[in-house]
């Protein structure tokens, strides 16, 4: 599996798409953050756009997974005798590293800016707690890419998911339902209404991650590749 990870990292270093998406993510979040920076800390302000920015994770999954199916790059890995589980895991880990990384790095940069300009503390504990929910958020586009194995249907289903999510976030009772959704946890943190016992939320994140991980792998494990 280390070979797959190395090959993926080599590709990332030479591919403009992931860097462009990560830069775009940072710029868009930075535009949105000042809207909420009145009496809200920079850290909390930069949590607010996370669910709305999932389309950037969808774009990343299209570039790093869907496109690889479309261009038959993944097929090359299979035909070279690599285990499908190793291919899946290597691909997913590098995707999660980039997609979760761009959320965390953006959060950290804005928190640091809050520390420098307004003396706000950087809540490393909260970032660490939210990390599984970020992974859960990023797993959704990856799941769609492994299920549909192309760009077109992954994009279509990703947009449908995005619309449903946006609609659900506009629902008045979203604060109650947010507990059960990985993208809802950053909303709870933004509103500063996280429950005192976080184990329940972590368990929900873990269930989401396990279900999406298993579903993605099952969709890839014995599937015919074009």
């Amino acid at each position: 599996m280390s070979r797959i990870i190395k090959a993926e990292l080599y590709k990332i270093l030479h591919s403009p798409a992931p860097w462009g998406i990560a830069a775009g993510y940072f710029i868009l979040v930075s535009i949105l953050v000042p809207d909420h920076s009145g009496d809200v800390s920079f850290f909390r302000s930069s949590l607010y756009p996370i669910p709305f920015m999932i389309f950037m994770q969808i774009a990343l999954a299209l570039s790093m997974i869907g496109n690889e199916f479309d261009q038959r790059m993944l097929q090359g890995y299979v035909a070279s005798g690599n285990k499908r589980f190793h291919i899946f895991l290597g691909k997913l880990l590098v995707y999660l590293l980039i997609s979760t990384g761009m959320i965390v790095v953006t959060l950290l940069i804005h928190s640091l800016y809050g520390l420098i300009t307004r003396g706000e503390a950087i809540p490393f504990g909260t970032i660490l707690f939210l990390l599984p929910s970020f992974v859960g958020i990023c797993m959704i586009p990856a799941f769609l890419a492994f299920v549909f194995k192309d760009i077109g249907r992954t994009l279509g289903s990703g947009l449908i998911f995005y619309l449903i999510m946006i609609v659900s976030l506009n629902n008045a009772s979203i604060s109650d339902k947010s507990v059960y959704l990985p993208f809802g946890h950053s909303l709870l943190a933004y509103k500063d209404i996280l429950p005192s016992d976080l184990s329940g939320l972590l368990l929900i994140d873990a269930v989401w991650i396990i279900v999406l991980f298993a579903g993605s792998f099952l969709a890839f494990r014995r599937s015919d590749l074009k």
Partner: peptide, 14 residues
């Protein structure tokens, strides 16, 4: 399959 080399339809290139 590690002993096989293959080019199936059009080549997969970056």
């Amino acid at each position: 399959r590690k002993r096989i080399g293959s080019l199936i339809e059009s080549p997969a290139l970056y």
